[in-house]
Structures are given as C-alpha cells and as structure tokens.
Amino acid sequence: MIWLWGALAFWAAAWFVNARIAASPVRDTKGARIVVPVLFGITLLVLWEGLVRAFAVSPVILPAPSAVAQTFAASTTILWEDFRQTVIKGAMSGFAIGASAAFVTAILIDRSSFLTRGLLPIGNFVAALPIVGIAPIMVNWFGFDWQSKSAVVVVMVFFPILVNTVQGLREAEAMQRDLMRTYGASYLQTLVKLRLPAAMPFIFNGLKIATTLALIGAIVAEYFGSPTRGMGFRISTGVGSLSIDLVWAEIAVAALAGTVFYGIVAWIEKRVTFWHPSQRR
C-alpha cells in the first residue's frame, strides 16, 4: 500500500507545484513551459509504477516502467536493429520518396487550373481514407523486406502533402503576383521567390501530418509479413510470446522516434517560416 499512497502523494505534490508555477509570474518563461509538462509526464510514470506495484499486476499484463527501462537498457542491440529496419529503411525512405513525389506533382498540376480543380477534391477525399489497408497488397507486390513498407508509406504520405502543397501554392495573393509581374519576373522566379515561400506553412503542415502517418504505415505493414526484425514484427511476436516488457520497450522506441521525427520537421519549419505570424513571439 505504501506504493499506492506514495504515488498519490507524488501526484498531489506535483499538481500543487504545477499550479503554483502556472499562477506565478514566471509562467511565461521558457523554463516553466518545459518544467510543467515534464513534471506532468513524470507524474504519469510514477502513478503507473505505483499502481502496478501496489496491486502486484503481473508483468505479462502490464510491466512497471522501471521493468521496461531495464529491458530497454538490456536489449539496445535488438531495438537498434529494429529501429534501423522500420524507421530508417521503411519509414524514412518512404517519407522522402512520397514527399518529393507529392511536391513535384503539386507543382506540375498547379500550372493547370483544370487539373487542380479535378485533383484537389479527389486528393482531399483520399487523404481522409483509411489507406493503411493497402499494407497487405503492398507486401504482396514488393515482398517482405523494407521496400514494401516504404511503398505503403509513400502512398500514405502522398495525398496529405499533395493537398497541402496545392493549397499553399494558391496562397500568394493576386496583388503580390501582380507585383512580381511588374518586376518582369518569369514563372520560375515567381515560383521560387514568392509562391513557394508563401506555401511553406502549408507544406510543413502536410509534412508534420505525414511524419506520424509514415511510422504508422511502416509498422502496420510489418504485421503482414517482414523479415525477422523490425518494430512491428517484434511487437506482434512479443505479444504472442508474452515478452510484454520488450513490447513496451519497442513502443517507447516508436514513441521516441515519432516525437523526434516530428520535432525535427517542426524545427526546420521554424527556421524556414520564421516570418509567419504563427512563429512570432
């Protein structure tokens, strides 16, 4: 019972501290913005640990975070191998191919208003579809290795990025385009100096959506067949063989990979669209 009360006491204390920080004058500083959510996250972990220990939950049902951390530290080689297979080979390559293809397609169809009007509603519709379902078809076409995962990711990330880029390219106002014309700017100059920069917030919006989709696609595709490595493979076999702590370690890797991937894209966005109102402080 000491664990339960300890965890609850920690929760209360952390909440009190956070409430004090949020009410104090330092709340808008960068430190407070980091400390408060981190404290909240730690509280969740402590509660998890406390509940698991207090109720003696079997490790094959829900292992405590400390047990997961131990497994994580003990099996870094496996985790790294899976990370390379799923995230770097599967998700990243698919993300790069899909994003470039969508970008090029968007610029090409943007020249024709007919194509834009035809493709935009379709793209919007397809972007809302459960495309993950094509995973078994892609595994059938491209084999078990990372190429099929990459193909799933390409299809999944293509449409959100396409739709956002096309929308972004329409963002430059008529007045601004006219100004470029009075400067005698060519199509390419207008594109590179005006319309692409104006489209960047939209493009990055699409890219950020695509980061999560990329990981989802790569992992789901592995459930339908993969070589004996990869995060999806390890998770599905881990559930079957009751090595649940390893599964949670893989989930931690997936969460970390997803967050870092998103963080990198958001960081680049900040550098590229520093002029946009949403980035101003």
Binding site: V220, Y223, I251, T259
Partner: peptide, 8 residues
C-alpha cells in the same frame, strides 16, 4: 499524436 498508435 506523434506516437504511432499501431504500436500500442
């Protein structure tokens, strides 16, 4: 949302 739900 950056955590791939399929893993979970």
């Amino acid at each position: 949302q950056t955590i791939p739900i399929v893993a979970l």
